[in-house]
Design a binder for these strands. Structure first.
Lengths: 233, 233
DNA sequence: TAAGTTTCAATAGTGTTACTATCATTATCG
DNA sequence: CGATAATGATAGTAACACTATTGAAACTTA
């Protein structure tokens, strides 16, 4: 037992098994590691990925640059770790949230909801602020793959988290319409689209639409999916 | 008359009026300026925005770093210039391509086509390779707004080009269904979505779908738009 | 043709970032 | 208690993103 942060037992003994390409040393394995994760979410949410540096992070969590490099090769890999964590967490919540449902339409609607809505919950996992992490995913996650290293990193499984979520929800689409030709395109469009729309709503509102009394982003994508797969009431 | 590059008269005397926030000195106003634009498209397409530096550009077009800084404040602004150019060019083509059509459905289908298909044409404008520029837009355009400076740059009109394209096509959507609640969301989803899907098709294929004998990206988004606005044959 | 003005090249220099390396110190664990 | 792993402290390097200054062409206008 560590004497500093309490070793919080994850719900149901779950442990998110993040691919190793993202880190050099598992940040879950030490107190410093967890502080790096906590602190980087805090700082990146505050100043954004571009201004985020290992120097600033080391100051804010009171350690040294050199120590950070023992856990993560560079800040890009750290972002990859954080976003991957988010996808695995989302997958976990999806599987859990859909477990008891039998009606495929209901399953799909709930899944789309979970993919597109804002994250309110907090403290599922001790040292991670999911709300802040979600904002980071909205603002920065495209930057994980829009790089020269995509192909190489992809080979090593860096994007497995995102792919699994897409595959999971696509399979529900196929339950509802087995002749649908574009399930993956549809779902990856929804996920990335919802992120961009949240960004637009905050910064470039003329690229979105506001509707009183509802979350237009969730509503729009739910409607869009059902219409696209030709769902009849 | 300049003695170096021939002063190519733009089709119909059109001149794309790119907002000034993107540049310090109009690159259309000199030979060096045009070489910067040509060379940056070439180089950025080749090595990507992240590895692209003013030093490398100055070497490749045989000028100095300092000279580049006279035209563009930094490489971010240069990317902004290039993508804005692309949006204005697209808007121009859209207006032109839809001019003779009266049936709103036909107009919408053609517009979606133009928004989502690959750019084959070339040499509309003398010193710009539109095919390479389109690849840059696909790979890098999200980076123009996913920054800390969005709000500030937006105030100064930096994203007018994108907004105008979205507004233009949204208005066609509204012609077809005046009660539709999410025209801007729909169209900005299509544009950004199509870019991402092209990227996925090349690098992360399990996030897309392939269909023999058609361009699945154009087909998917055309279908998606028509279904979403509830178009009945 | 001379003078002014714009344009660009050349060079140098600064602060910051993204690392890498080394060695001392402190926990942890068998 | 001794070994080993984890961290801290410090230093240093190469590249990058600029800024500043000066001087030479070239082009413009009187």
């Amino acid at each position: 037992m560590s004497k500093t942060t309490p070793t919080f037992q994850l719900p149901l003994g779950v442990r998110l098994d993040i691919p190793q390409i993202t880190y050099l040393k598992d940040p879950e394995s030490s107190d410093l590691g967890r502080r790096i994760v906590t602190g980087s979410i805090e700082l990146m949410d505050e100043i954004g990925f571009d201004d985020f540096t290992f120097k600033r992070l080391s100051n804010s969590i009171d350690t040294t640059e050199a120590s950070l490099y023992r856990y993560f090769e560079n800040k890009h890999k750290l972002l990859l770790y954080l976003t991957t964590w988010y996808w695995y967490w989302l997958e976990y919540r999806l599987v859990f949230g859909l477990a008891n449902l039998t009606d495929p339409k209901e399953k799909l609607v709930k899944a789309i909801q979970m993919l597109t809505e804002e994250v309110q919950q907090d403290s599922y996992f001790a040292h991670i602020d999911e709300t802040k992490l979600h904002r980071i995913v909205i603002n920065e996650s495209s930057k994980t793959y829009l790089t020269r290293m995509v192909d190489e990193e992809n080979k090593m499984g860096a994007f497995r988290g995102f792919k699994r979520v897409v595959a999971l929800v696509s399979s529900i689409v196929m339950e509802l319409n087995k002749n649908f030709k574009y399930p993956h395109m549809l779902i990856s469009t929804v996920i990335e689209g919802a992120h961009h729309q949240r960004f637009f709503a905050e910064h470039l509102p003329s690229l979105t639409d506001k509707v009183r009394g509802e979350d237009p982003i969730s509503s729009f994508y739910t409607m869009m999916v059902l219409q696209s797969i030709g769902y009849k009431k």
